[in-house]
Design a protein around this nucleic acid. Structure first.
Lengths: 198, 198
DNA sequence: CTCGAATTAGAACATAAGTTCTAGAACCAT
DNA sequence: ATGGTTCTAGAACTTATGTTCTAATTCGAG
């Protein structure tokens, strides 16, 4: 029933992701997306209510993709070695998802979801922070027997923030993180989490 | 000769910095700057050739301000302890310059200088990377007797990238970095630079 | 005091980009 | 075939924003 669609949500989202990764979120105009897939601008609005919704969706997809992998890796960790492996996950993920990494590491949520969210995304977004908090807390409990604020701060620094800082310069130059970074990240994990009593 | 000016470059730059820090670069419209200081929009153009030039200038001011302090601190360092002190500089700087920090740590150069630079700024910009490279290289030479690519990578990670990663989440929430971060940053420095033979 | 220059003041203009609208085409069920 | 539906196609509309323009104002110099 109805004419067959030439342009789907996926095509548009993919084009938008490429534009955002290569030239930044402000380059993701409706006209640019349309041009990238050879569609008229109006067709975008047959698939998305607004540019906002499209951008929010690609952002959420990327965040979920990373977080799912990271949490999965962390779930099997219960000691410093496991933590080091989880800390290296970001660098590995970047090697396989450079475009997505450029969204996640080089920009803000605000650049993609700057106003009213589509309700479906509100739901997805609401689970993100709790899920990450639970994953970090669970690891802390397994590895150190407790998950107080100070331990969580250390774990977050060692497993997420410091690796992010190390990786960002490479992503910015459109390169994957080099292997030698893994050694530095692991050393950081051992130094920051090593002294914690069980 | 001529009417006395009510609005100077400084007023405009300060207003723009505040806007950028609080609501992001895209909120720094010419109209918003003018409104913030109670000036007509046209007056902005008596002081700056374009919005571009204004944004580029505040960006460059902030980068130079940070880099000057960091390099000064690093210049007195010649061992691991000095390195740890330099690594903590960013967190200290953020405590005293939260607005500036939000520009430097939360955004890209691209958001502020997205095209043709005013010639005066090209000159200032050209010295930034060399100066930072020289500072890091100088420290490496003093502390380890050499400054090859691998050492420099470690120093940059320990003194700049990892601290940046640790600080960013706090700046994002408009908070200064807590003291406990300094301990983690120092531990990172010792772990990453500690094993290097002299 | 008058003239010229720099500035305020704010309207006017130009452009870019998101969104909506109108036509027409393609498809399916009846 | 026909009608309803979903899409393409792209023009038209709207709004936001950078920039320029015109007029009035205020200052110092001669």
């Amino acid at each position: 029933m109805g004419r067959i669609a030439k342009f789907g949500r996926e095509d548009m989202a993919r084009a938008a992701l490429e534009l955002a990764a290569e030239r930044g979120p402000q380059a993701v105009t409706v006209a640019a997306i349309a041009a990238a897939i050879g569609a008229p601008t109006g067709s975008i609005y047959h698939r998305f209510d607004s540019r906002e919704e499209l951008l929010a969706e690609i952002w959420m997809d990327v965040v979920e993709s990373f977080q799912r992998g990271f949490i999965e890796r962390l779930a099997t960790a219960s000691d410093i070695d496991g933590a080091a492996a989880a800390a290296c996950f970001m660098a590995e993920w970047v090697r396989g998802h450079l475009r997505e990494a450029r969204l996640l590491l080089l920009h803000h949520r605000r650049d993609f979801v700057s106003g009213k969210w589509p309700p479906s995304l509100v739901e997805r977004a609401a689970t993100l922070e709790p899920a990450m908090g639970a994953a970090l807390g669970g690891f802390a409990k397994r590895a150190f027997g407790r998950a107080d604020r100070e331990i969580i701060a250390r774990v977050r620094f060692a497993l997420l923030d410091a690796p992010f800082g190390g990786i960002k310069p490479y992503v910015q130059e459109n390169k994957a993180a080099p292997r030698e970074l893994d050694a530095m990240v692991s050393a950081t994990v051992r130094a920051v989490l090593g002294g914690i009593a069980r």
